[in-house]
Write a protein that binds this DNA or RNA. Sequence first.
DNA 1: AATTGTGAATTCCTTCACAGCC
DNA 2: GGCTGTGAAGGAATTCACAATT
Lengths: 216, 216
Amino acid sequence: MKTEKISELTINRLSVYLRCLNELADAGEQTVSSKTLAGRFNLNSAQIRKDLAYFGEFGVRGVGYYVEDLRVQLIKILGLVTEHRAVVVGAGNMGYALANYSGFKPRSFLIIGIFDSDPAKIGRVVRDGLRVMSVEYLKDFIREEGIDIAILTVPASAAEEVFALVTSAGVRAVLNFAPIQLHAPEGAKVRTVDLSISLESLSYFLANPSVELATE
Amino acid sequence: MKTEKISELTINRLSVYLRCLNELADAGEQTVSSKTLAGRFNLNSAQIRKDLAYFGEFGVRGVGYYVEDLRVQLIKILGLVTEHRAVVVGAGNMGYALANYSGFKPRSFLIIGIFDSDPAKIGRVVRDGLRVMSVEYLKDFIREEGIDIAILTVPASAAEEVFALVTSAGVRAVLNFAPIQLHAPEGAKVRTVDLSISLESLSYFLANPSVELATE
DNA sequence: AATTGTGAATTCCTTCACAGCC
DNA sequence: GGCTGTGAAGGAATTCACAATT
C-alpha cells in the first residue's frame, strides 16, 4: 500500500465497485475483469485498475479479480469492518428520514441517537428504541456512546454552531445536509449533500439543452 | 455567451455564488469583488472570474461585480426564472422529507405530486394539498401537469423502471436517490445523490486518518 | 489468449500573472 | 490603485497502449 495522496473521486468509485462486487458475489460470480466492471458504469477499465492499484495488487493477470477477495479488500480499505456509530442532529423531516434510512449498511453504520433543540420535538419516537433527545445532551452522548459520525440536518443558520459542538466532542466525520460550507478543523472531514445545488444544476440543464454537460 | 462546453463543476459553483449573492443583497452590499467572494469559500478568485466569464462580462474593472446585477444574471443562467414543476416518486421517509423540504427555492421548484406503488400509501396526506397517488397515474400526470423534474426515492430495484417511465413521459431532469447508476437517454440528465457513497467515504477517512483527502 | 499494472499521452481543471480598464 | 478578463502555466484526473504475467 502506497502512501500517495488518494483522490476523493477514487474513494467514491471504490464504494461503487464494492456495491457491484456484492451483487456479483450474490450472483455467484467467481471472478470479474476490470473491463466487465467498467461496462457496468461509464468507466474506463484502466481507471478501475488504477484505482485499485493504489491499495495493492489484487488482480491476477489473464484472469481478472476474484470477486470475494476484492470485496473483502474493499471492505477493509473503506473501513467498513469496524462499526460506525452515528447521530443525526436535527429532527425535521430529513432527520427522520435518515434515521430510518434502510440504505445504510446496518453492519457498518448504526444511527443510535437523534437530537433537536426544539422542545416540542424532544421525546418523540422516531423508531423502535430511538427517540429525539435534547441537543443539551449531545456532547456527553457523543463521548459516552463513542459516536464517530454526525449527520447534520439542521437549518443553515445553526449548522456552524452544531458543527463546532460535534467536532469539539470528538467527531471527525460529518455528513452535512445544511446548505452551507462548513469549515472543517484539521483532522475532521465534512461531506456536504446540497440538494439545492443538485436541483439548480438540473435547472441549468433544462434551460440550456443544447449545451452538453459532462455525464456523471 | 460562448458556446463552449461548460463543466458541471462550474455550474455547481454558480449555485454557490448565487446563494452568497443573495446573502450579500440581503445585507445591503452593492458590489463584491471576486477576491471577497473567493474568501467565503475555499476558492481562488481567478476561478470565480473564469466561471462567470463563460457567460459574459458581468464585472467592472476596478470595482468588482454589482451584487444585484450578478444575482439576476445567475438566476437567468441557472434557469431559475422559469418555474420548475417536480414530482417525487417513492413515498417512503425520504420521499416525504423531500416533498416537504423547505430548502428548495419555492419560486423555482414546486413539488406538485408524490407517487408510490404501494396501495397502503396511496391517499395519504403528505402536506396540505399533496397526497400520495398511484404510479399508475404518473405518466398522465407528468404530461398534463407539465412536470419537468422527477425526484426518485424508490428502491434501487425499481429505479431503472421508474426512470424509464418518467423519461418516456417527457421528463428530462432526474434527481435520483436510489443507489444505482441510471443510464440516461440522449437529452436527459440525471443527478444521483448516493448517501452510502458519502458515508463510506467518511468511513475511509476515519479508517485512514493519516492520508489526506482533498478538501471539498 | 486474456487481463493486469503502469509509464506516457491526453484531457480537463485550476491557478498564475498581467494587460486592459475604471 | 483596484479589479476584471484571459492567455499561459501548472496540476490533476483520465485514457491509451503495452510489457509483464498467468
